[in-house]
Amino acid sequence: MAETSWSDALFDVLVRQDIRQVAYVPDAGHTRLIERCTAYPAMETSVLTTEEEGIALLAGAWLGGDRGILLMQSSGVGNCVNMLSLIENCRMPFVSLITMRGEWGEFNPWQAPMGLATPDVLNRMNVQVHRVDAPADVVVTLDAAIAQSYDGMLASAVLLSQRLIGSKDFEVVD
């Protein structure tokens, strides 16, 4: 499945699961999904200055009756740590869709530390991690993560592996 195709499939999951607020710090791997969400009138998309804002924003959204999701890349997980105490203390739903960097053909060493630490950091803050490596698993995994977050009150993160989304390819200009 091409990136456009599974991004569209992920968007369909968000619609079906009645996700009303989408908060994000962009990643190239989320480009298509962010475009689809922004163009959809029934979703409020908020571009954040830092990922931890998204946790607080979505907690407020849920207090007001909206389901939401946080889109970010693995480097942003490190920015979220203390704010995740809000989710745990209040046992609020939380779900994040995270594109991985620093793990598969990565050319930028600055992405490696948080790429490696992302699953552990999330686990330590009681966010259950679901990793997706195969295109065929993308839809079912996000579906399950949203369901267990909003129905089961289990904070959840779906990691889209760098092998799945493709290594970022920078053209070197002399």
Binding site: G54, A56, A59, G65, L86, N89
Partner: peptide, 22 residues
């Protein structure tokens, strides 16, 4: 009233999410 006892830096973002939902 929703009282925060922690989550420092999150008050205003939380109010934004609530305002968009309501």
């Amino acid at each position: 009233n929703f009282y925060l006892w922690g989550a420092m830096g999150g008050t205003v973002a939380m109010a934004l999410g609530l305002a968009l939902a309501q």
